[in-house]
């Protein structure tokens, strides 16, 4: 489909229907969605359910390694994963700016569909609104998702000695976006790590009983996610800088800009808190997965510290604080 989105595409009439059929049904193709119902009807196995929602307003809409569609699908799938749930059904709402290229919308819907297909999740209901030019920046997407929580997953209080796993390299999504958004004239091969992580749940199987908590380090990065866990659990942690994997290109960009990669988002990584003594067992499972092949135990929770601390590569120590602000435009 060529052309631009007009207000007519959102009026609920002929054009809306054509848009839904030609783009959304085509890419999200599944029998629950295409039934022309106002609400999706489906059956579920019994058990605990996880339900989550998130909205995506990323700028730029297309970035190295993905686009807002892949991000919206992965984000909700990963939120379900963090709840120990296998993703089943997603809903999506699009708010589109008048004048948006239909071809771009098609690409976005295609990557949402593909992302869901790779993990066996289905987008079963959706909504489209078109607003006047200038009211939104291109396209905003909301996704919600439902999944069935693994029977053995039982989030528990974190205690002294529990081990912290990070499933891969950090800050690649945030850095890729940073370079695109601010047009800093830095050439690099950095791509977003954006991807769904739901394969973690079946791979862990019954071993998921050793997982006390999972969190995806999106906004605010690994440092902020760890600080949030530490604050809510009232326990400090020591992170080993040497175990944190940062690609050289990512490190170079942050060295150049004076920013800290620990505070930049990942969209395809998970932090897992593992019961004391079981960290290596979990690592051995995770490392076999494509999405987690760089998994490492990066630190442990400890009552010796009241906050999250970092042991630097050569043995220094410092606090990891919650992100307050990172100024990229600086005098020196």
């Amino acid at each position: 489909m060529k052309g631009k989105i007009t207000l007519r595409h959102g009026d609920g009439g002929l054009h809306t229907n054509k848009l839904i059929r030609d783009i959304f049904y085509r890419h999200f193709n599944n029998e629950i969605l295409t039934g022309y119902q106002d609400a999706a009807i489906f059956s579920l196995e019994t058990g605990r359910l996880a339900f989550t929602t998130d909205s995506f307003v990323v700028k730029p809409i297309f970035f190295p390694g993905g686009d807002i569609g892949k991000l919206a699908a992965s984000g909700t799938i990963n939120d379900l994963t963090a709840a120990g749930a296998a993703p089943l059904f997603l809903s999506t709402g699009f708010v589109i700016e008048e004048g948006f290229e239909i071809e771009m919308l098609d690409r976005i819907a295609a990557s949402m569909g593909q992302t869901c297909n790779t993990v066996g999740a289905k987008i079963v209901t959706g909504d489209t609104k078109v607003v006047e030019k200038g009211l939104v920046d291109g396209v905003y997407i909301n996704t919600s998702g439902i999944g069935i929580v693994h029977g053995c997953f039982c989030p528990r209080r974190i205690t002294c000695g529990d081990e912290i796993i990070l499933t891969g390299t950090l800050a690649e999504h945030g850095t890729a976006i940073l370079l695109e958004r601010y047009d800093l004239g830095i050439q690099s091969d950095i791509v977003s790590d954006c991807k769904p992580l739901s394969e973690i749940i079946p791979a862990l199987g019954d071993h998921i009983k050793y997982v006390k908590l999972m969190r995806d380090p999106t906004r605010g990065g690994v440092a902020t996610a760890l600080c949030e866990i530490s604050e809510s659990e009232h326990i400090g942690a020591m992170i080993d800088e040497e175990k944190l994997k940062i690609r050289p290109a990512v490190r170079a960009v942050h060295d150049l800009l004076g920013t800290d990669p620990l505070y930049f988002a990942s969209e395809g990584r998970m932090i897992l808190v593992i019961e004391k003594g079981y960290g290596m067992e979990i690592i051995n499972i995770l490392k076999k997965l494509e999405s987690c092949c760089d998994a490492e135990i990066i630190g442990t929770f400890s009552k010796m510290y009241s906050r999250v601390c970092l042991r630097t590569t050569f043995g220094g120590e410092r606090i990891l604080s919650m992100l307050e602000n990172q100024t990229i435009s600086r005098i020196c």
Binding site: G258, F314, E317
Partner: peptide
């Protein structure tokens, strides 16, 4: 220099 203040703290040098 402020950059030294920042780097000293970021590397955790005081603790050493």
């Amino acid at each position: 220099c402020g950059t030294h203040a920042y780097q000293i703290a970021m590397f955790g040098i005081r603790k050493l």
